[in-house]
Amino acid sequence: MLNDTRLRWLILFVPVAVLGVFFWYGVADSLWKSFASPEIGLQNYAAFLQSPAEMAVLRRTFLVSIGVTAVCLAFGYPYAYLMTVTTARLRTLLMVVVLIPFWTSMMVRTYAWVALLQNNGPLDRVFKSLGIGGLALIGTPGAIMIGITQILMPFMIMSLYANMVRIDRRLLDAADSLGASPAVAFVKVFVPMTVPGVVAGCTLVFVLSLGFYLAPVLLGSPQHAMLSQLIVQQVSQLLDFGRAGAMAGVLLALALSVVALGAVLARPAIERGYGENT
């Protein structure tokens, strides 16, 4: 009987149990090992936080994520804005261009950048023919950012768009009719109302970029490693689950605090009535 409360609990229990066993148990286990492997204590965290090389990686991861978020916002904002004001036909075009890469394999897209950015590759030769040679991007944080940005841009644009379509455009017209110039109306009326979308999009993009692995490995280089590479290295080369767990724990804590910060930042705007958005 599906109406029976006990049966509903059972129906809930099965997916919870599957996720508990095949996901959360592993998460708990790796966090536990970070404190207990090889012996109980904080030595794994201490080793991580006291290693200048590893802290440099953490800093780089943080900076690249901030850079990616900033670039996504700078380019995504006008894009999402145009989606809300343009004709239906152009909007569909803009939408499709965002969605197609969204559905295209991440591996494929990252690999495409490998092909494009390689030394003597198409972009390199374009630059060389323009006389700006020696601008080999591959292996640099710049290449990593280009790759990650391309993958995360759709997330930013969709978050911003979901917020912007709900904004009552008559408010802008009202500002117009009150004598504000379009630019002033845009900055004073429209932009504040998009704060929830900006916060949501930035949180999402930042958190996702913190844990990127493919782009740093394929487009970056060991000298410019990101935290995810360090973690993988600990596990796959050194089989040191304790150290890996500690780094994962720091990464996770960083991600969760950004999510929490995003929730706090978005709240005042939501309370002002600009609507909860995705």
Binding site: P15, V16, L19, G20, F22, F23, W24, Y25, G26, V27, D29, S30, K33, V207, L208, L210, G211, F212, Y213, L227, S228, I231, V232, V235, F241, A244, G245, A248, L251, L252, A255, V259
Partner: peptide, 20 residues
């Protein structure tokens, strides 16, 4: 509990899953 894996950094999920 059910939705959080969505926002987990991929590498964190990976070592958690691989370990067990």
């Amino acid at each position: 509990f059910l939705l959080a894996p969505m926002i987990f950094p991929g590498v964190v999920s990976a070592i958690a899953i691989f370990g067990v």
